[in-house]
Simulated assay, not measured.
Amino acid sequence: MEDDFGYEGRRRIRIPLLERLRALPLVATGVFTAALIALILTTVHRPATWNDALPWEDQPSAAPVVAPVNPDAPAAHTPAPRTPAARPATTASASAVPSAGGTAPSPITATSPAPPPSPSPSPSPPVPPQQRTTRYEAESASRSQARTANDHTGYSGSGFVDYDNTTGGYLQWNVQGKAGTATLRLRFANGGCCHRTMDISVNGGTVHRGVRFDPMPRWDAWNTVTVTVTLTAGANTVRATATGREGGPNVDYLEVVQ
């Protein structure tokens, strides 16, 4: 018993324990070195493994969007094309009205109102017959106590007719007409101090007496006097007779409008 528990005995027990404790740092160093070498080898052979799952990423990224097989179908995240709104006046619209029995709602169709009937055209007024104007030069008419002259300007044709300063001188034209009313236009010049008068007769009968031909500033200033007469179909005679002692004015032409 003394050998087991004596000084020598205790020494034999303590020496193996101390040797074991001294070996622990060497073991720990070897384990740490082996783990470090394994970590380095893992990092060298798999460099991308650190990026597969980052610490701040809870879940992996979503799979890419695959284009639809149907080319006519709209792609993902693409808004549907806008269609023009229907016009309420021309397009029928349907509104759902629920029935009491719970059946499917029946559409209510709104139709556009019928256009108002177009007004019937009012009858146009009758078009009057087109009038015709025929000119007869004074120098071509038969005359009495009157002469052809051209000493003043502004006349038509080859000249004009100058009445003598006496009563009774006249000009007479043979005109063609149709039965009915006609307008006679006498172009004249009167450079005297006072008006001059003439009687207008048709087919031998006086229809206008004392027709006035007012004075003008000079003899080459021309004016027109208009009278209304009745003609017969075919040939007619129109006469302009001076009724004053100064005679008639200078006459350029006669126009018949009918």
Rank of each mutant, 00 (worst) to 15 (best):
T226E: 15
V66G: 04
E2G: 11
T33H: 12
S99F: 01
V69S: 03
M216I: 03
V175I: 08
S144W: 05
P129G: 05
P88W: 00
V161N: 08
T181C: 00
V65F: 03
H195R: 03
S95N: 11
G210V: 00
A189R: 10
G234D: 01
S106R: 08
D164N: 10
T49W: 15
A76P: 08
A100D: 11
A73H: 00
R212Q: 08
E19P: 01
L231T: 06
W173I: 00
A110P: 00
V256C: 05
G192K: 09
N223A: 09
T226S: 15
S122G: 04
H77S: 10
L231M: 07
A240P: 01
P25K: 07
A89T: 11
Y170N: 12
R187Q: 06
V66H: 06
V202Q: 04
T183N: 11
T43G: 13
A75F: 07
A85W: 05
D252C: 03
Y7T: 14
T83D: 01
L39H: 11
V238I: 12
C194I: 01
H45F: 14
A38Y: 14
A221T: 15
P126C: 00
A48P: 00
A96Y: 02
V238D: 06
P123A: 11
Q131D: 05
T228P: 01
T241W: 06
V229W: 03
V65A: 11
S201R: 01
V69Y: 15
A141W: 07
F32T: 09
P60F: 09
V238R: 06
G192F: 15
V238T: 02
G205D: 11
L24M: 08
F188G: 08
N190T: 03
D220Y: 15
L26W: 02
S112H: 10
D4I: 02
R11E: 11
L41Q: 11
P121Q: 14
R22E: 13
V127C: 02
W222Y: 10
M1K: 11
A141F: 04
V44S: 02
R143V: 02
T49K: 12
S118F: 02
A63I: 04
N250F: 10
G234C: 05
R196A: 08
A182T: 01
N165W: 02
P126A: 15
A23V: 04
P126H: 03
P71M: 06
R87H: 05
T153G: 10
N223Y: 03
T29E: 15
L17K: 04
G168A: 12
R14E: 14
A38R: 14
A67P: 07
M198K: 04
A85V: 08
G102W: 13
Y170L: 04
P98A: 14
A76N: 04
R87E: 12
T33D: 03
E2M: 09
H77T: 03
I15Q: 14
S106I: 09
G180K: 12
T166I: 01
V161S: 07
S120Q: 13
R187Y: 07
A63V: 12
P16H: 05
Q176L: 05
V207F: 07
A67N: 10
T148D: 13
I15Y: 04
A110N: 14
S106D: 06
Y170A: 07
P217E: 10
R46P: 00
R10D: 07
G177K: 01
A233N: 11
R87Y: 02
L186T: 13
L184G: 01
D4V: 04
